[in-house]
Amino acid sequence: MRLLSVVAIVIIFGFLFVGILHLHPVGEAVGNPDVLQQRPEYGIDINGVTTMDDYFLRNGQVETKSNNIVASVVFDYRGFDTLGEATVLFIVVSSVSMLFFTFLKSKSIISAGVPPAGQFPKIESRVITFGAFIMYIMILSFGVYLVVHGHVSPGGGFQGGSVMASATALLLISFLITRHMQQTRKIFSFFESLGLTIFIGFGFAGIGISFLFNFLAHTSTAFGRIIPFGPNQGYLISAGILPWLSLAVGIEVFFGLSLIIVTLFHASGVKDTNSLR
């Protein structure tokens, strides 16, 4: 059995190393014509590209009107995979909520309510709460920036959502939220479902051609404006439905991860842990 696992590990690492050998060198932009002249094996022109990432790098800005090629791959070319990822996160949040549902709904817990203040360790220092509040505002605005600029600069829905959820974690750890947990969880679960619904709604809006078709990029609105090829600063309002999908994923990830943390925190504050078993 031990020999078998060693063989499996060797095979998996062999596949990984073979995959790594076929990667592009770090920092070498294939869309750059100078690089193309030096390395002619990485694609010749738009129609004669040899590998998939060459195609994305050369045609991503033209086809999806987005400056961030990663965002154009994640939300446009592979939008269906992103829907799958968002659904996986939704299922995880649902299973965590389901795991603690009866535990948090039972009579004794409701009468006990949210854990009283005495049950927590006494760290109600003004430095901690005030510092946590300041940092909460800053982290939250950074997360919103990442979500909104997902199609222009590095970032996007998942990254911005996770950054915003870490701001929620900061609020919980500094005990700024100790009351109204039940209502908070209801609001969070509503907004999490709303984010996924917006994503699927935008997918169905382009159903005339295909599911998750970037229909706004081919209209004459500001979302369909043509951006220049190569490195440029880009526009905030561009890239078709990409900013909207990024916003939807950001809402879903933020409220989903926050719901996980709030549920765990709520459950961990309850003294009687016998009903957990």
């Binding site: 990254q159 996770s162 950054v163 870490s166 974690a169 919980l172 750890i173 765990l264």
Partner: peptide
């Protein structure tokens, strides 16, 4: 950014809880 948000912050918070 994803690693800093999830790996460094959220996982730590969940483990601490």
């Amino acid at each position: 950014i994803a690693e800093a948000g999830i790996g460094a912050a959220l996982t730590t918070c969940i483990f601490v809880i």
